[in-house]
Write a protein that binds this DNA or RNA. Structure first.
Lengths: 226, 226
DNA sequence: CTGTATCCGTGTTGATACTG
DNA sequence: CAGTATCAACACGGATACAG
């Protein structure tokens, strides 16, 4: 079928055959919190072109990672939704993200999608810091709302109603990232991010997501001769 | 630097920028059990071309995943060796391999490299089945020797002297795979695989690596009309 | 023997425009 | 909204030639 396949019995090579193509994993990531339409996917993946998105969706469907469903009328649109097995791939994103967060060449500050931010919180939460916290945190990024629950030492987050939470973050998800991972004070994020509700809880919340130490760079910084 | 980079702050996207290129992960896999030379890598990655291997090695070196070392004379050859952080990526291969082993589209029977086989054992071992086993297992595939140790409910395997083990498998690594994962009886693998030493231990050993159940295919098998 | 560099045919990717 | 068509740029794989 596929022209360029590793002809290798290794399961890792098979994984790369089905999800190793450019954009395949970012597409899966965007579907991890629930189904999306073609246009939603395109909007949350800046840089992808329509034909590549079509091809990847076909490939991922053929691999049983997602299914295409036509919503019942009146909403006559199609949606793409992960299968159970596709959803099980979340562990890949967690492990990959945790490993890459130590990369010495990673440059911070680039924009992230709504889903990326939420998944990164799922990945980087340090459950040992939750203690006896018992709270709900809402987030509103553009049209999308997410809801996090801290309870019994555990942390869950997904799409959900944000308004009634104990704290509500709203605005630009990148500003929240700058606060949580970049140590930016809320004050300096004002304008891009507003915090409503229990301010002290918000301050505690953002300290639940420590970054692991960077791995050392093994590259000599190349004395740039003209 | 890189022409085609996801411009995405998500750590997963950064990971894909540095290890998402074709052949990058298979190269890392081949170095996971210790350093190799350019020619060794090429031989264990059928299908890769010299220039692509050179490019990937450069990229992985720039990302601090591996370093290039010149062996001291008399062996004047270079070797490629994972950095500490590069070695920490083994978890990626384990998670990826375990997930992909459930793929409904994976076809068994394709050849695997020596390293792939050893890493797959590390990945698929079911420690709960080890019980009080206390033994060493040797494997000799071509020029390479590996040694596994079962002790105190744990399993370790890596490059190492094989001869003195309680059981010695030698011959074609693919035949061992067919026995362990394919359920092929030793008898039918004879010729491709020889087993020396404690035969009963060998039989117990190969049952320590159960495969997880396949995920269901969600693709309708397309009634092939002429 | 161990790599590296260059050329070339081919397939994949990506941007734009366009259609149901 | 959900893709398809077209085309240019690039990456890949193979072969070959070159350098230490």
């Amino acid at each position: 079928m596929k022209k360029r396949a590793y002809q290798d019995g290794c399961a890792v090579a098979h994984a790369l055959d089905i999800i190793g193509d450019r954009w395949a994993m970012p597409i899966m990531r965007e579907l991890m919190l629930g189904p999306k339409r073609f246009t939603d996917l395109r909007a949350s993946l800046p840089g992808i072109s329509a034909n590549v998105l079509t091809q990847r969706l076909e490939g991922l469907e053929a691999a049983s990672i997602l299914i295409r469903r036509r919503l019942p009328p009146p909403a006559a649109s199609q949606i793409y939704e992960l299968t159970d097995w596709g959803r099980e791939s979340e562990i890949l994103f967690q492990v990959l993200g945790r490993w890459a967060s130590r990369s010495p060449t990673m440059q911070p500050g680039q924009p992230m999608s709504h889903v990326s931010v939420v998944l990164s919180l799922r990945t980087m939460i340090d459950r040992s810091r939750i203690g006896d916290m018992d709270a709900t945190i809402g987030m509103r990024f553009g049209e999308e709302e997410f809801r996090a629950i801290l309870k019994d030492g555990d942390f869950t987050i997904g799409r959900g109603e944000a308004e009634s939470a104990d704290v509500l973050f709203s605005g630009d998800q990148n500003a929240l990232v700058a606060v949580i991972y970049g140590g930016l004070p809320f004050g300096e994020a004002a304008g891009a991010l507003t915090v409503a509700g229990d301010r002290e809880l918000a301050e505690r919340f953002i300290r639940l997501f420590p970054l692991p130490p960077k791995a050392p760079s093994t590259v000599t910084p190349e004395t740039t001769a003209s």
